[in-house]
Computed example of a mutant assay.
Amino acid sequence: MPLRFGNSDSSFDRRHFLKNSASCAVAFSLLPALASKNIAADQSDLLPPARKLFTAVKWGMIEIEGSVTEKFQLCKDLGYSGMELVSPLEGFTIDDVSAARRATGMPVHGVVDMKHWNIRLSSPQEEVRAQAVGHLEQALLDCHALGGFSVLLVPGKVTGPEETHEDVWKRSIQGIRKVLPSASQLGVRVLIENVWNGFCETPEQMRDYIDEIDNPWVGSYFDIGNVRKFGPSEDWIRTLGNRIVKLDVKDWSQKDGFCKIGDGDVDWPEVRRSLAEIEFSGWCTAEVTGGDSESLRDIHRRMTEVLEID
């Protein structure tokens, strides 16, 4: 039967779900080790909570020729933990990805809804909003088929009198709520990315936006570098707290704009402290200029250094 966690009037504690679901992959990965040590099931609650950060890059950053399996293998060889793909499927099929996962052991952690900028949930045109809902629904299906558990979504864009901040807020929430039955049935989260779209440019606004949706299948895909233009990244992390399910990793400076990870104004020690305070554990995906294997190697080095990932 479908997996469901209720709706806005449910007694289910959404924040409790958000805090714990981000660590599900870690918990399952520990099961073989626990079994090998013959730890009794009734002693599992004595174990300390696991915190682990996993690395990936956006699919479009992998600028090499080759098959899907070869690209998966390259990322594995460079030290990345898994893959993030796109919807609609572009340059690959579900069978291609299944073969690549079997060959490399690399998981797919999610997909990006690639239609959300031009076909927006916040559009003033009702027929465009309906298309956006359809694309988001398809992204959920694609993600499930590929083995992932989240769809990255930009909820809209403030463009003027016909697409104001209030319009983006109301229209996008209406659209997101239409796909939540599918999200709960498929076990795929809808994660809102903070971008330069004129929407929710303070952490309090983003917090309140997610809280108004009030559903455990919706959370934050927090972009560390995107918010640095508006304020300290660590302040956003502390305000959003366990609403954050995944991280996009980039840097930004007042002088140069977006730059290589570690070369900008992001206070990485404070970012690490704030992530530890909210007990974040999960996927960290680079979203910077990609390139060949050497470029991707440097990105992995920089990302693991600033976040102190083992």
Rank of each mutant, 00 (worst) to 15 (best):
L152P: 01
L152H: 01
L153V: 11
L153D: 08
V154Q: 14
G156Y: 05
K157W: 14
V158K: 09
T159M: 15
T159W: 11
T159Q: 15
T159C: 11
G160L: 09
G160Q: 08
T164E: 02
T164H: 01
T164A: 05
H165V: 12
D167M: 06
W169S: 14
W169N: 15
S172I: 09
S172Y: 09
I173H: 10
I173R: 13
G175L: 05
G175S: 06
I176R: 02
R177V: 14
K178C: 10
K178V: 07
K178A: 15
V179P: 09
L180H: 02
L180V: 03
L180I: 03
S182C: 10
A183N: 04
A183H: 05
S184F: 06
Q185P: 02
Q185A: 15
G187F: 02
V188Q: 08
V188I: 07
R189M: 14
L191N: 03
I192A: 01
I192W: 02
I192N: 03
E193A: 04
E193V: 05
E193S: 03
N194T: 04
W196R: 11
G198M: 00
F199H: 07
C200W: 07
E201T: 11
T202G: 07
P203V: 00
P203R: 00
E204P: 08
Q205M: 14
D208S: 15
D208V: 13
I210P: 01
E212C: 09
E212P: 03
V218M: 09
V218K: 04
V218S: 06
G219Y: 03
S220Y: 02
Y221Q: 07
F222R: 00
D223V: 00
D223E: 01
G225N: 08
G225L: 10
V227M: 12
R228Y: 08
R228T: 13
F230P: 04
E234I: 07
E234D: 15
E234C: 10
I237V: 00
R238N: 06
L240Y: 01
G241C: 07
G241E: 08
N242Y: 10
I244V: 06
K246S: 08
W252N: 03
S253A: 09
D256Y: 15
G257Y: 09
F258V: 11
K260I: 10
I261G: 00
I261D: 00
G262T: 04
D263S: 15
D263Q: 15
D267R: 10
W268C: 11
P269H: 07
E270D: 14
E270H: 15
R272G: 10
R272S: 05
R273K: 13
R273F: 00
R273A: 09
R273S: 10
S274T: 09
L275T: 06
L275Y: 04
L275G: 04
A276V: 09
I278Y: 02
F280S: 12
F280D: 12
F280I: 12
T285P: 07
T285V: 13
